[in-house]
Simulated assay, not measured.
Amino acid sequence: MSIEVRPARVFDDVATMLGPKRSPDANVCWCLSHRVDSRTNKELVGRARGEHVADLVGAEVPPGVLAYDGEEVVGWAGVAPRAGLPVARSTVIPTVDDEPVWSVFCVRVRPGHRGRGITRHLVEGAVALAREHGAPGVEAVPVDNRGEKVDLTMAFVGTRALFESCGFTVVSKTSSVTAGHPRVVMRRSLA
C-alpha cells in the first residue's frame, strides 16, 4: 500500500468521496454540514450542494485533502480555518483561545479500504495543508471513545486515539456528545 495525500483539487474525486451514490439530486451532506452556517446548509439542496463544493474545490485554498492508493481515491479529510466554521460559534464546543488555528472536521475512508491506517495519512495531510497556508496550529474535536466501537455513520469526527497518534493533545473538554461518546478539543501546534 502506497498512500499519497493531495489537496482536494479534483472535483470528481471529491464527489466520489462525498457525493450522492445514486441520484445527483439526492440531498447528501457533501461535508457541508460542518463547513457552512445552518441557514446556508438548509438552503443548499440537491445539485446545489455539489455545485457549492465544486466552487470550494476551485478556490485558492482547497476544502480539504484526498488520499489515493495509486490513482484510486480512497479517503477525504475536511480542514479549514476554524474561525469560518460553525464550530467557532458552538455553544457546546468551547473556543480555547484566539489563535487562528485550522480545524479538521471530517475524516472519511471508503468502504473496502478501512483498517489500513489511511485516516492517519489524511490527518497528516490536513495538517500539512494547514501549515502550507500559515496556520499556527490545527484542532479537531474527536470522540473520546476509550477504545469502544464508534458507529461508522458518526465516526467522521475521528477518535481521540487517532489524533493522539498524530501528535495532537487534549486542550479542553466539551459538553458535546457524538454517538454516545464525549468529545474533546485537541490541538497540534505548528509553531
Rank of each mutant, 00 (worst) to 15 (best):
T159F: 01
A48C: 04
P111D: 15
A126H: 00
D97G: 03
G112D: 05
F105E: 09
P142W: 10
A48E: 13
R183N: 15
D55F: 04
L85K: 05
L56P: 06
P81D: 02
H133W: 03
T95H: 05
K21C: 11
R116W: 06
I118V: 15
V107C: 08
N145Q: 06
V157C: 11
V73I: 02
W102T: 00
E139C: 00
C31T: 10
A77Q: 05
F168I: 01
S172Y: 00
V109L: 06
C166Q: 03
R39K: 14
V45F: 09
E99T: 11
V14T: 10
A191N: 09
E164K: 02
P142S: 07
N145K: 05
S33Y: 13
V123Q: 04
G50A: 13
H181E: 04
R116T: 01
T91Q: 10
L85E: 12
G180N: 04
T16S: 11
G50D: 10
V61F: 01
S176E: 14
A54K: 14
F11C: 06
A77N: 03
L44V: 03
R187K: 06
V87P: 03
G46A: 08
E132K: 06
R9Y: 00
A15L: 07
F105L: 07
D98E: 15
D13Q: 09
V184L: 10
G180A: 02
V150A: 09
S175T: 15
L56W: 10
E51T: 12
D97W: 02
G134A: 01
E71M: 06
E124N: 15
A8M: 07
T159H: 04
A140M: 02
L129A: 02
P24F: 12
R110H: 15
P100S: 01
A26Q: 15
P111M: 12
G180P: 05
R188E: 03
F163K: 04
L152M: 12
A155L: 14
M186F: 06
P142H: 07
I93E: 07
R146S: 11
T16N: 05
P20V: 11
E132F: 00
T174S: 10
V53S: 14
D25E: 14
V184S: 02
R110D: 12
A191M: 03
